[in-house]
Each structure stands twice: as structure tokens, then as C-alpha cells.
């Protein structure tokens, strides 16, 4: 009997679903990619850079803090946020080091396999494309998490030695939440670089495109917002409503940039006395005791939109790359 002669029922059942799980082989990919990341020269250089900046900024912050120690309830958090000329604060450094690391982890994820001619060989194994792309993303994500966790431990350790105090539970909780924010901020750039690695055949093009987007948001977006705001919500008569509308437009526009989301979320978490990022009217401050810290739950509520924004952007970019990769022809 010919194998093409299948019963009708069998054929209908087959056409409904693909067999097996799309995640078959996922962990094999994750393990291999993470091993690659952690042993690559590229990552060693970046890790060294991050550790040097972490050490340098925290040392500078410690010098500052020693002079006014004792008054602050959240001394450990100040390690992350205190800057001393000419060095920016550690979170500021991370604001541009994280995108750099994330882009370095993913810009040759797919096109690198193409150019090495390994893609068709790997996809000829019993796995779906889902496992390859997801595995590469997760490997980058875990590597980033590993690097961030290492830095976090380093700073905490330096803090304990330098300040002579253990961190409080809330300080630990807040700085761990900060790690989550930083991780998803990196997730955006990871997913973006991976998207470009699907689109562009040359890894160099993908890297440059990712860096161009990053530069756009870091340098040019604020200028563009400055130009756009007077056009979108002009102040014609000098009314307070007009002024408020203008400031709100400006805030909305700047929040389209992942950098803004990251900065706001970080400030909200690491400076517990921050109560709002927008305009605060005197009427809204009635009954508030200025300068008192918010409880962690309230700070989290404050930064919730920023955090979900970061996570949503990561998922969106990954989904876009996923769709493009599924449709791509794998022959060179």
C-alpha cells in the first residue's frame, strides 16, 4: 500500500496540529549559547569594564557618604545613586553599559549562524525554530542576569566593608527590584539586537543598526521632544492649563524612550522619598510629609507603569523577531 494513501480522518488530524512541543531542545540551545557567551572575549572585555565602573563609582560614592553618614536610613541605596564629580552615579553608568552588553550578546545571534553555515544543520535536527530563537534570547537574558547579580553582590560587599553596616531588608528588596528593572531594560536591547540579527545578513550592519537606535534614544530623542512639544501643545495665552498640558506632552513623549523608563523606575526604587515623576500641584501635596520615604509597596506602585512598559517592549520586540524568523527562508 502506498504511504500517500492516508485515511481522511488521519489527514484532517495531521493538518490541525504540528507534532511535539516547540520547546524540544530549548535547554540544549540555552546551555550552549550561555557557555559561548561566558567564554567569549567580547563578554570578558565588557565584564571587566562593568566591574571597573562598579568599583570606581562605588568607591567614589563611599568617600562621599562617609562624610555625612548616620543620617540616612537608606545608605546602601545611596551607593547606587550618589555621584561625585567627575564620575556619574553607578545607575547612570549602567544606563549605557547595559544596552552595550545586551547588543553585544545578540547582534550576531541569527546572522552569525547563517554566515557560519550552521543554521541549516542545526535546524535539520529534531527541533523547531522556536527553540533556537527562544534559547538564544534566554541565554542572553540569563547571561545579563548573571552579570548584574555579580555586580550587585560586589556592590553590597563593598558597601558592607566600606560602611561597616549590614544592609536592611528593605534596602536588599529595593535593590533586587532594581535588578529586575535593569534586566528588562537590557531585555529590550537584547530583543532589538536579535531582531536586527534576523533582518540583516551582516552582523556588522545589525550591530550598527542597534547602536544607532540606542544613540537615537540616548542623545537625540530629548532634542526631538524639545522641538516637538511646542508644536504639539503650544502655549498661546500663557494660561496655567496650557503650561500643564505642555509639560504632560513632554513627559509622555520622553517616556517613549526606554532610557527614560529605566531612569524613572530606578529613581523610584532607589530613592524612597520620590513620590511622583510628573508635575505635582500644591493641592495634591496636602497632608504629605515632604522628604519622608515611601514604603516599598508604594514605590513599586509608582514605578509599575515604567516596569510594565519595559517588559512589554521586550516582549513586543521579541515577538516581531520571532515572526520574521519563522518566515525566513533558511537557504543562503
Amino acid at each position: 500500500m502506498s504511504q500517500l494513501e492516508l485515511t481522511q480522518a488521519q489527514r484532517v488530524r495531521e493538518q490541525r496540529a504540528r507534532e511535539g512541543s516547540p520547546w524540544t531542545g530549548l535547554w540544549a540551545v540555552v546551555v550552549k549559547e550561555m557557555a559561548d557567551h561566558l567564554t567569549s572575549v567580547r563578554m570578558r572585555i565588557l565584564e571587566l569594564l562593568i566591574i571597573l565602573t562598579a568599583g570606581g563609582t562605588v568607591y567614589a560614592a563611599l568617600q562621599n557618604l562617609r562624610q555625612g553618614a548616620g543620617q540616612d536610613r537608606f545608605l546602601f541605596l545611596r551607593l547606587f545613586t550618589t555621584s561625585r564629580e567627575p564620575l556619574p552615579a553607578f545607575i547612570g553608568f549602567l544606563g549605557f553599559l547595559i544596552p552595550l552588553v545586551a547588543i553585544a550578546l545578540a547582534f550576531d545571534a541569527i546572522n552569525g549562524e547563517f554566515n557560519q553555515r550552521t543554521l541549516s544543520r542545526v535546524l535539520a535536527q529534531p527541533i523547531y525554530r522556536d527553540a533556537l530563537l527562544m534559547g538564544k534570547f534566554l541565554a542572553g537574558f540569563f547571561t545579563l542576569a548573571l552579570v548584574l547579580a555579580a555586580i550587585w553582590l560586589l556592590i553590597m560587599g563593598l558597601g558592607i566593608i566600606g560602611l561597616g553596616l549590614p544592609p536592611s531588608g528593605e534596602e536588599v528588596a529595593r535593590s533586587l527590584w532594581f535588578l529586575v528593572v535593569a534586566l528588562f531594560y537590557g531585555g529590550i536591547w537584547l530583543a532589538l539586537a536579535m531582531l536586527f540579527s534576523v533582518i540583516f545578513r551582516q552582523p556588522a550592519t545589525a550591530a550598527l543598526a542597534s547602536i544607532a537606535v540606542w544613540l537615537f534614544f540616548t542623545v537625540f530623542w530629548d532634542m526631538i521632544v524639545g522641538v516637538l512639544v511646542p508644536v504639539l501643545s503650544p502655549v498661546r495665552f500663557g494660561l496655567p492649563e496650557e503650561r500643564i498640558a505642555q509639560i504632560e506632552t513632554a513627559l509622555t513623549l520622553t517616556r517613549l524612550s526606554p532610557n527614560t523608563l529605566y531612569t524613572e523606575a530606578t529613581i523610584g526604587l532607589l530613592s524612597p522619598s520620590v513620590r511622583s515623576f510628573g508635575l505635582v500641584l500644591p493641592s495634591q501635596l496636602q497632608g504629605a510629609i515632604l522628604g519622608t520615604p515611601l514604603p516599598l509597596g508604594q514605590s513599586l506602585l509608582l514605578i509599575w507603569p515604567q516596569l510594565t512598559g519595559l517588559i512589554a517592549a521586550t516582549i513586543l520586540l521579541f515577538a516581531l523577531g520571532y515572526i520574521l524568523f519563522q518566515r525566513q527562508e533558511i537557504r543562503a
Binding site: 495531521e14 493538518q15 496540529a17 504540528r18 507534532e19 511535539g20 524540544t24 535539520a124 535536527q125 529534531p126 527541533i127 523547531y128
Partner: peptide, 10 residues
């Protein structure tokens, strides 16, 4: 429809 079965044998 059954790529995994094919690819694990070929």
C-alpha cells in the same frame, strides 16, 4: 506536519 519525526530519522 511531523517535522520532528522526520528530522530525528533523517
Amino acid at each position: 506536519r511531523q517535522p520532528l519525526s522526520v528530522k530525528s530519522r533523517v
